[in-house]
């Protein structure tokens, strides 16, 4: 039950032919699937129709059927807006930083945890490690505010070790914002993300390690030549899945941690949409920004998938 399974068993399924008899037999299933499809159309596909707004001079009183059609004007306006270009940079930067650091820490943590000899200790550490995943961002940012405040533990430690002379207000300096976000993500998700790598490591054939030891491989060689190649398919699949989410990774924490002083580095596309779309009521510009985000996400995921396919690696589709 893990991603390490290299080859899927191909089941030769012959689709059932649509006949009246089958339809009658499956009428219960068809009835429920009809309801479920209606639900799906309303809640997942209908909002896509709202994309029309981005090409209109949308006025709530006219609705999407009677608003004036203005083509790509809203997109032009977007890309001439310095703020929007800045929020793209912020979203991409934080998305990529988080993706990279979370991958590295989760894989490292999984490998190191796997090297623990005592199984009970391993279990205890793992259980503790993913507790933060279940705390909301509200709580995590609350804790961060406390820890990084003037009298917080971080300043206290830095002063005690004479690294700084007086407490720093971390939230007042733009240069600290991205590292804080990255650290928060590491703190919250490392243990959780490691679960799947640990499962993959456990699935590696122990004979491989024995064989490597006999050939004289030390610990680092074993990790480098057995463990890492063993979990490579898992890493690639998760990387592919997360590449499409790079732009989605920027809302809650930035919204909760951001303040006027660090606005230039904290605002992301989602916050921009929220600000212009909901608070200012400019639905068209908010929708246009949302479309841009969706398109970039899809392009990213398709490109990443193609690269993986080209290199003969695992892929999503």
């Amino acid at each position: 039950m893990s991603l390490t399974r290299k080859k899927k068993e191909k089941v030769n399924e012959v689709p059932t032919k649509i006949t009246w008899k089958e339809i009658k037999r499956q009428k219960v299933l068809l009835f429920w699937s009809f309801l479920i499809v209606v639900y799906g159309v309303v809640f997942y596909y209908l909002p896509l129709a709202g994309w029309v707004m981005a090409f209109q001079n949308y006025k709530p009183k006219d609705g999407i059927f009677h608003s004036e059609f203005i083509g790509l004007a809203k997109f032009e306006q977007l890309f001439h807006d310095a703020t929007f270009l800045r929020v793209i940079r912020n979203t991409l930067a934080m998305g990529v930083i988080n993706l990279v650091v979370c991958f590295v820490t989760a894989i490292t943590f999984a490998i190191l945890l796997n090297e623990l000899q005592n199984n009970n200790r391993k279990k205890v550490v793992q259980t503790i490690s993913y507790l933060p995943h279940f705390l909301s961002w509200i709580i995590v940012t609350g804790i961060l505010h406390g820890a990084l405040s003037g009298s917080g533990i971080i300043n206290e430690l830095l002063v005690a070790f004479h690294i700084i002379d007086s407490p720093i207000n971390f939230f007042a300096h733009p240069k600290f914002f991205w590292p804080i976000v990255a650290f928060a993500n590491i703190w919250k998700e490392t243990g959780w993300n490691a679960i799947i790598y640990l499962a993959a490591i456990t699935a590696i054939d122990p004979c491989l390690y024995e064989a490597a030891s006999i050939d004289g491989a030390g610990r680092w060689e074993r990790i480098k030549y057995v463990t890492l190649p063993g979990i490579k398919p898992t890493i690639i699949i998760l990387l592919l899945m997360n590449v499409g989410n790079v732009l989605n990774a920027g809302f809650e924490i930035q919204y909760l941690l951001g303040n006027g002083l660090v606005k230039s580095v904290s605002e992301t596309i989602d916050i921009y949409v929220l600000k212009w779309g909901i608070s200012q009521g400019d639905y068209a510009i908010g929708t246009a920004a949302g479309i841009f985000k969706s398109l970039v996400s899809i392009i990213l995921i398709v490109v990443a998938n193609q690269i993986a396919k080209h290199n003969g690696e695992e892929r999503l589709f």
């Binding site: 909002p47 896509l48 129709a49 709202g50 994309w51 499409g244 908010g286 949302g290 969706s294 899809i298």
Partner: peptide
Amino acid sequence: YVNGGLIPTFLL
């Protein structure tokens, strides 16, 4: 993978 985004959802 595809969703309408905040504004259309809000209006819906």
